[in-house]
């Protein structure tokens, strides 16, 4: 957290653009979630569970949400490019004492730290909060189930994956120092690192389905007991099943964050040696 904080402090001139980029990213996820939810409300209106709302208004809102998605993504990409080039300029100034090759390699690893690591986390948190509000309106138990699944998929699993990936990288770095360069060894290392990442992503997908079925069963039980009405059941299941995408991306974002932290540690190590 300290290292990320230092990097963000270094990039303070870009703070306003970073906030806008996170907001645009969160809005894109939110609009993406609103499409099935609005369609769910439209279904309720058609079957007579929500007579006070207009079907036309729902349809127009869903269409507007759909069209807003590419517009928001485009705007977000524009800010991402500005943040990246601004970060690169700031890093170049801060690393001017470093050798060219090393500096360029560190800049390559660090310039995407915000949009590839920090921003997805922030946007996923905002998205999860919005989904929890939608689900929590109907029943606290389902909201708690949703919260625990978001924490597992969005925090626990990415952290486990990133620390496992980091230890594999450290092991491979130690073995590279001890042995001569060997193409087969290098490929084996690449395979192991990639397998760790793939296993994490696969585990995220598996858990997403598991949590979905747990929620569906909970909804069935609550509905049969009369605790949850049909509107609550439909909106809860739709919201939950359509809310995983921003969280599943976080496993990859955590990997990138670890890479950023490694690069930042190398830089501070090099700068300490230079000071000595």
């Amino acid at each position: 957290m300290k290292t990320v904080g230092k990097l963000l402090k270094m990039c303070k001139p870009l703070e306003s653009r970073m906030r806008v980029q996170v907001l645009l990213s969160a809005m894109e996820h939110l609009f993406s979630l609103m499409i099935p939810v609005l369609a769910g409300y439209a279904i309720l209106q058609i079957i007579g569970h929500r007579k006070n709302l207009s079907l036309t208004a729902f349809c127009i809102a869903a269409v507007l949400c759909c069209i807003s998605l590419p517009v928001l993504r485009k705007a977000g990409q524009k800010y991402t490019m500005e943040i990246r080039s601004g970060t690169e300029d700031i890093l170049r100034v801060n690393m001017e004492n470093m050798a060219d090759g090393k500096r360029d390699s560190h800049i390559l690893r660090l310039k995407g730290f915000f949009d590839e690591a920090v921003s997805p986390f922030c946007a996923a948190v905002l998205h999860a909060i919005a989904a929890l509000i939608l689900i929590g309106r109907y029943n606290l138990l389902t909201a708690l189930l949703a919260l625990s699944s978001y924490l597992v998929l969005g925090a626990v699993l990415p952290m486990l994956a990133a620390s496992r990936s980091r230890s594999v990288r450290e092991e491979s770095r130690d073995s590279e120092e001890n042995t001569e360069e060997d193409t087969d060894e290098y490929e084996q290392t690449e395979l192991i690192e990639g397998e760790v990442s793939a296993r994490s992503k696969a585990a995220s997908e598996l858990l997403a389905v598991l949590f979905s079925v747990m929620l569906v069963i909970a909804v069935i039980l609550l509905y049969r007991q009369g605790v949850l009405n049909y509107e609550g059941s439909l909106i809860t299941v739709l919201t939950f099943m359509c809310s995983f995408e921003p969280l599943l991306v976080l496993t990859g974002a955590a990997d990138i964050l670890m890479d950023v932290l490694d690069a930042a540690e190398e830089i501070s190590g090099t700068q300490e040696k230079t000071d000595e």
Binding site: I35, A42, I43, I46, F58, C59, A62, I67
Partner: peptide
């Protein structure tokens, strides 16, 4: 979006 509207 129109696909969803047609379905509704």
């Amino acid at each position: 979006a129109l696909g969803i509207v047609v379905c509704l």
